[in-house]
Simulated scan of single mutants.
Amino acid sequence: MRSMAAVPPDDASSGGTADLAQLVRRSSRGDEAAFGELYDATSARVHGLVLRVVRDPAQAEEVTQEAFLEAWRTSARFDPDRGSALAWLMTIAHRRGVDRVRSAESASRRDTTWHDRSQVVPHDETAEAATGALEARRVRAALQSLTDIQREAVELAYFGGYTHTEVAAMLDLPLGTAKTRIRDGLIRLRDTLGPSRKEVAP
């Protein structure tokens, strides 16, 4: 895999969405040169997204490499009817970044388990923790109710911390389309999680 130091600042020279999709298709047939072109065209954006998620340069580079390795292994599964090649790559990278963060948090929790268990926890704090865990499970389940295109937009905006304009650029969409996907996804989340199902004004 190539070094991140050698990548160009963006994928402006790649030609466009159709060209990236073609590179993915060629990569799925074992074309290493095509995959190298795909990497050069998209690695800066992918690395930028991962860095925003993991917030550590060294880990971001590792996760970026892992994301591209996964993309190489799973390139045959890319379906252009479900989204652009860039969106597909960003989704893989975002998932890898979130997994790295969760793994680090899990390791940290294991390191402090003995200390936590030795403390006397008041009943109200226990109830609060249980409620928080329940809410987190409900949110994760609700996210699965979204369509793939809604979920990737919502995750980038609200878990990746990107603006609507940045999400539009990452998913290679018009700004209005990106806003619509985020809005529709949030409405569906609200309807799934909320106690009522009120109509939302357009």
Rank of each mutant, 00 (worst) to 15 (best):
Met1Asn: 09
Arg2Met: 04
Arg2Tyr: 09
Met4Lys: 06
Ala5Pro: 01
Ala6Pro: 02
Pro8Val: 05
Asp11Cys: 07
Ala12Thr: 11
Ser14Asp: 12
Gly15Trp: 03
Asp19Gln: 12
Leu20Trp: 00
Leu23Glu: 03
Ala33Phe: 13
Ala34Gly: 14
Gly36Arg: 15
Glu37His: 08
Tyr39Asn: 00
Tyr39Gln: 12
Asp40His: 00
Ala41Ser: 13
Ala41Lys: 08
Ser43Thr: 07
Val46Tyr: 07
Gly48Leu: 03
Leu49Gln: 01
Val53Ile: 14
Val54Gly: 01
Val54Phe: 00
Pro57Asp: 03
Gln59Trp: 05
Ala60Asn: 04
Ala60Cys: 07
Ala60Ile: 04
Ala60Arg: 08
Glu61Ile: 01
Glu66Lys: 11
Ala67Tyr: 01
Ala71Phe: 00
Trp72Ser: 02
Arg73Asp: 14
Arg73Gly: 12
Thr74Val: 08
Thr74Arg: 08
Asp81Cys: 00
Ser84Ala: 06
Ala85Thr: 01
Met90Phe: 02
Thr91Arg: 12
Arg95Gln: 15
Arg95Asn: 15
Arg102Met: 13
Ser103His: 10
Glu105Tyr: 01
Glu105Thr: 01
Ser106Ala: 14
Ser108Phe: 12
Asp116Trp: 09
Gln119Leu: 15
Gln119Thr: 15
Val120Asp: 13
Val121Phe: 10
Pro122Asp: 15
Pro122Ile: 11
Asp124Gly: 02
Asp124Ile: 01
Thr126Tyr: 09
Glu128Ala: 06
Glu128Lys: 07
Glu128Leu: 06
Ala130Met: 11
Leu134Ile: 11
Glu135Ala: 07
Arg137Met: 12
Arg138Glu: 14
Val139Tyr: 05
Arg140Tyr: 03
Ala141Trp: 04
Ala141Pro: 02
Gln144Thr: 13
Gln144Leu: 12
Asp148Phe: 03
Arg151Lys: 09
Arg151Val: 04
Glu152Trp: 05
Glu152Leu: 00
Ala153Asn: 10
Ala153Asp: 04
Val154Trp: 04
Glu155Ser: 11
Ala157Trp: 00
Ala157Tyr: 01
Phe159Trp: 07
Thr163Val: 10
Thr163His: 08
Glu166Gln: 14
Ala168Gln: 00
Ala168Arg: 05
Met170Val: 15
Leu171Lys: 02
Leu173Val: 10
Leu173Asn: 05
Pro174Asn: 10
Pro174Thr: 06
Gly176Val: 02
Thr177Tyr: 04
Thr177Phe: 08
Lys179Met: 04
Ile182Leu: 05
Leu186Phe: 00
Arg188Val: 02
Arg188Leu: 03
Asp191Ile: 06
Gly194Pro: 08
Gly194Arg: 06
Val200Ala: 04
Pro202Ala: 14
